[in-house]
Amino acid sequence: MKILEVEKLSKHFGGIQAVWDVSFKVESGEISAVIGPNGAGKSTLFNLITGHLDCDAGSVIFREREITGLPPHKICRLGLGRSFQRTTVFDRFSVFQNVQSSVIAGKGKTISFFVPVKKQFSEIVFSQLEDVELADKADMLAAELSYGERRRLELAITLVNRPECLLLDEPTAGMSITETEYITMLLKKLAKSYSVSLMLVEHDLNVVFNIAEKIRVMYQGRLLREGTPDEIREDEEVKRIYIGN
């Protein structure tokens, strides 16, 4: 089953065509990656899909429903989550509150007054924190965590509402080798146990070839190739872009 369909998506900033006539389909449960040199339009593509930017043309269909032009919070509630290139968490909230806030929003309870929030949803929150191995730090402020832990917290925030599809913008950027290995293992495990489709933008090609079942290569705003890791590895054009002539 197709979970996400992107059709002829285009976006330009001034004279620069950031994303140009991009179309592809994501299967349910698939782990895929978008790669390409800097400025290829990968992050813009994510921003268009999640409603952070309005597209000039084209459409995005999620679970057989057109979501083009919907505001981010609506798209998110439909089950399409995302993480950011720069870690985006609630700094002065505790780790527990970070994930709890996500559950509140996911369940559409942000306009409920008068019931003290204190321990609400604590079971869901703790089971999620255990899955990313942060349960013992639940009372710490997010700002006090290490970089890798903050990355995992962001993952917990996006995963706790069990999205059907999750877009991860460079999940291992700035991490040490051990941290990278750990998060790759974690992503593989969680994607399977939650049966969520993952789509990641990643610069670390080791991670990409390790984790992805399908790879899409972008170059100058266009979708250049789409294929299995083996096909991409052997592709002359891709080699040319990455290694040069």
Partner: peptide
């Protein structure tokens, strides 16, 4: 309440608040 925590989450990180829904 849950509402209170939600508006505080906007204060902490508007982008993240939007993208948790």
């Amino acid at each position: 309440s849950a509402f209170g925590q939600s508006i505080q989450s906007v204060r902490e990180n508007r982008l993240r608040a939007e993208f948790v829904g």
